[in-house]
Simulated assay, not measured.
Amino acid sequence: MITQDWLTDAVLYIYALSLLFFVSDAASGNRSARKVGTGLLVFVWVLQGVFLLVLLVDRFSVPALTLRDYLFFVSWLLVSASFILNRIVRAELLVLLVNVVGFAVLALNLIERNRQKVELEPWEVARRLLLVHVGLITLAFAVLTITAILGLMYLFLHQRLKAKKWSHVMSRMPSLEWIDQYAYRAGLIGVPLLLLSLSTGTVALLLDGSPAKLLDEKVLFSFAAGALYIFYLIRRLASLDDGTKLAIWNLLGYALLVTGFFVSSLSSFHQML
């Protein structure tokens, strides 16, 4: 067993099995495998939803959050996003990649580790702002993860087309124009969420009388990521760069965001496990 809990282990294994069926569909166009994979993924999504409701009820009266809680919600959001993408666009490989990331996040979440908590500020206004901040940054992270996946797909497809190396996998991918357009649209959603989360977190720190915590490494990396994402959106809107450069700007912004998320810090504001 991975987690010493048969139910959470079952969720992880079913999720992995659903990915195998999606891989079969992406590799050979096996529609039956896609239907089975989708059915298993729906089951995983329902179980995750139940776990999430239990988690929310458990945390409702306790102003504390762990990294495991955060990652669990991100994984659920990515699975939800994959269903939406599967319904509105024909991009099987994108759906598969989103679910691969969602599975990785869930697996990381379920690995046993010490549970250090994020103690929210005692002042009620600051506490509520921090709750809003956590919710917004979680949504932003999920949306920008999809944006980064699209950026990787763009670079891969562009390189293969430039080298004139066609493969069956490429036939399962949307066009470069489609990828660029939807990466931009996802960025238009994710970046404002990121900026709102940073603004609410900043206000909470100021109300708490702790402006020095704005120099925390995670805060600085997050602000740098926000600035780079704004630069990316401006360059995309003004058509100042080609698709390859835009994809690189997109991925650099995500790299800063992820680096800030995992960087070591002694700050009580961002001390997650």
Rank of each mutant, 00 (worst) to 15 (best):
R160G: 07
A247P: 01
A81G: 02
D208V: 00
L139M: 13
S267Y: 07
L155D: 12
R68P: 04
R127S: 10
E92Y: 08
G39W: 03
A27N: 11
V118I: 15
I137G: 11
S167N: 04
K165I: 10
L207V: 10
V57F: 15
V36I: 13
N86S: 15
A186H: 15
S199D: 03
R68Y: 09
L97P: 00
L257S: 09
D208Y: 09
L188N: 09
P174S: 06
M170V: 04
Q159A: 13
A238D: 01
L161C: 01
K213Y: 11
A140S: 12
L240Y: 03
L188W: 08
G243V: 06
G39M: 06
L246I: 01
R172G: 11
P192Y: 09
R185S: 04
L55K: 01
L155E: 04
A126T: 08
S32A: 15
S61H: 15
L131F: 05
T3N: 08
K165V: 05
L196K: 00
A140G: 05
L196D: 00
D5N: 12
M173P: 02
V132F: 07
L207P: 09
T8I: 14
L193V: 04
F43R: 02
T244L: 04
N109F: 15
S24G: 11
V105C: 10
T138L: 13
F262W: 10
L53Q: 10
I111A: 14
S199T: 02
L93T: 06
A148G: 06
L215T: 12
W6K: 09
F156A: 09
L56P: 01
P174N: 04
R34M: 08
A91N: 06
L7Y: 12
R90L: 12
G49I: 06
